[in-house]
Amino acid sequence: MSLPAGLAVAAATLALDQALKAWASSGAMPENGYAPIAELGGLGLGATLVYNPGIVFGMVLPEADSRLLVIVLAAAIASVVLVRMVRSRRILLNVARGAVVGGAASNIIDRARVGAVVDYLVVHTGPQVRFVFNLADVAIIAGALLLFAAAAAYALLPGKPA
């Protein structure tokens, strides 16, 4: 039961993120521009189209030739998480693993297909501070945080070795 749940989350994350990337790339969003979605105090959410050759949230890689290294590293991490998902019977952990695998797979597809990750969401706290990302990035971070929280909770259980 837990493996199908994890695989369903991975497939849904991959499909939805790729659909949003295709929509953003079709001209629906301004390239390197900003279309506001919501503002709350000094925090704004908007849409944009950015081809990010770097890593998460628009961080730039040290060299342009590191694309293959990033693909291999992301694929290795996603593979390890997928193997852990196959071996686990914990549904919540497999849902978190599915989010990581689906997000990583979507970003790997972008890097292999267009040489960069397609980002389409922007959060800003002012005119200069902004973070550009996509659903895959959100899934990877949310899944990883859930896995870290579960590991911390497990470590704190009474009777477990330190």
Rank of each mutant, 00 (worst) to 15 (best):
V101P: 00
L69M: 10
V100E: 00
R113S: 09
V100Y: 01
I91Q: 11
M85A: 11
R84K: 09
A104S: 07
I91T: 15
R87A: 13
A104K: 01
V81W: 01
R90Y: 06
G103H: 01
R84W: 08
V72I: 11
A75K: 03
A112H: 11
V101I: 08
L73T: 14
I77V: 15
L93A: 15
L82R: 00
I71H: 02
V72H: 04
L69G: 15
S66A: 15
V80Q: 00
V86Y: 12
N107D: 09
L69F: 13
R90G: 05
A74R: 14
V95I: 15
L73H: 13
A99K: 13
R67C: 09
R84H: 10
V81I: 12
R89C: 10
I108P: 03
L68W: 15
V70W: 11
V86P: 02
R84C: 07
A99Q: 10
R87D: 12
R67A: 15
R111Q: 12
A76W: 06
V95A: 11
A76I: 05
I91R: 15
V80M: 03
V81F: 04
V83E: 10
A104R: 00
G98N: 00
R89D: 11
A96Y: 05
N107T: 11
R113D: 01
A75F: 12
A76L: 14
S66Q: 15
N107R: 05
A96R: 03
V70F: 15
A105D: 00
R113K: 06
I77T: 07
A99D: 13
L92F: 11
R67G: 09
R89G: 15
I91D: 03
I108L: 04
S66V: 14
L68N: 12
R67E: 08
A74W: 10
A74P: 07
R90A: 09
M85K: 02
R89S: 13
G98H: 02
V70G: 12
I109M: 10
L68R: 14
A104L: 02
G103T: 02
A96T: 02
A112W: 13
L69N: 11
S88V: 02
I91N: 04
R90M: 06
V95H: 05
S106L: 06
S66R: 14
A105P: 00
L93H: 13
I77P: 00
A105S: 01
S66N: 11
A74G: 10
A96V: 02
N107S: 13
A78N: 01
A74Q: 12
D110S: 04
I108V: 14
A78W: 03
G98I: 00
A76M: 04
V86E: 09
V72E: 04
R97T: 03
V101S: 00
A76P: 06
V95S: 04
V101E: 02
R97A: 14
L73R: 12
R90C: 10
G102L: 02
